[in-house]
Nucleic acid binder design. Structure first.
Lengths: 212, 212
DNA sequence: CGGCTGACAGGAATAAAAACCTCTTTCGCG
DNA sequence: CGCGAAAGAGGTTTTTATTCCTGTCAGCCG
């Protein structure tokens, strides 16, 4: 992303690095000395005024500064929030049923929408498994990809990937913890209980997302 | 250094990375569709025309592209792969059942793993819907979030969100196209056919992912 | 201490980019 | 195969950045 404040700060930083004022930098670049005046950074009506891309090119040319170095000064050293590129609009199904939630092409529109992001794989140590065969029907079909968070607390109702001692991997729905272990239900039959003792469970991973 | 040709090449590269034309990128950014027309890159007298810095800021905002990544393409003109931060290990369920696929904590290990990434929401115009009520059981439970790609081709077996004229939103499984319309099946009952004429379908969105 | 120069405020004029408009071409879908 | 939408050419109008101009202030040098 690129903001008005960042651009002007980068210009000021560039000037300082070459022992110049903004006015001096402008002159060095063949521009009018008042081009980068602080008083010219907002228009009379308060609207931000952006230096032109050509002016930026001229000051880089005049100083010999690589554009990569110039852009590096845009960074503030702050820890970055989730990149905007992982965000997407999100709303409830019933809100989405309202006429004004979409435009005529099926794109979200209007004020009913919040935002959601995919979790950061690096942050949560996520991994994915691709389902094969029909064992998980009708919930998961062959070819579906499951995104799993290991080492994550699980609660009632969560779907989990369990590594069971002597039985391999299973997908279950978490029901409750008991003193002796944990109780699950089968994925598609909530009435079918599966009880596992603590030592039968090698590890659990919580299933976050499934591809369709 | 920063040249006229590099800036326009970077804009074109950004557009391609997000599956857009220069015209589409301009629209996505809230600019006039003709802002980045190739015919507007030189003035009538042959003088180079520079896109404004504010326009560049807008396209970065609209795509979520970090300015560093944009600038990196100035030099090379090459497109960047999906950011490493969206990647995660992926393998098949049966491979995952092998002993060496995980360490003792349930973290992926060894050579059985490929990679997968979440799709880029900005790239595909994704949006999310949160399921409420029990209408979609047992496939989707209340609280599940569905990630939907509008304006995306659908194939047999895909789960779709359909906006049906006079009926609102429905979730169906695509079976096949017919001359008169499209045939779907109900989500949990593949034998229950739903046939919709073309004019009954306002739009379709393909369901890519579901939270669990 | 006074003069000169540079930095900068702020307004007007000029130049340049975006928006608007009309039109043609191409491609994809029904 | 025809229709509609997207992309883009190119011209005109509007908006915005730069240049030009006048003026003030601060710092430095003689």
């Amino acid at each position: 992303m690129l903001s008005h404040a960042q651009v002007w700060a980068a210009i000021d930083g560039l000037a300082r690095r070459y022992g110049l004022s903004p006015s001096g930098l402008a002159k060095r670049a063949g521009l009018d000395p008042t081009t980068f005046n602080p008083s010219k950074r907002f228009a009379g009506d308060g609207r931000p005024r952006w230096p032109s891309t050509e002016s930026l090119a001229k000051i880089l040319e005049a100083t010999g500064e690589p554009v990569e170095a110039f852009v590096a000064t845009l960074a503030t050293g702050k820890e970055k929030p989730a990149p905007a590129s992982r965000m997407m609009p999100c709303t409830g199904f019933s809100e989405a049923s309202r006429q004004e939630a979409f435009d005529t092409k099926g794109l979200p529109s209007g004020s009913l929408w919040g935002e959601i992001a995919f979790p950061d794989p690096a942050n949560k140590g996520l991994f994915a498994l691709e389902v094969s065969g029909d064992d998980q029907l009708p919930i998961y079909r062959a070819g579906d990809v499951l995104i799993i968070a290991p080492l994550t607390a699980v609660r009632r109702g969560d779907r989990v990937l369990a590594k069971i001692h002597g039985r391999g991997l299973s997908i279950l729905t978490m029901e409750r913890r008991t003193q002796a272990g944990m109780q699950f239900s089968a994925l598609d039959q909530p009435s079918e209980a599966v009880h596992l003792a603590h030592d039968q469970i090698e590890w659990l991973g919580r299933i976050l997302w499934a591809s369709q």
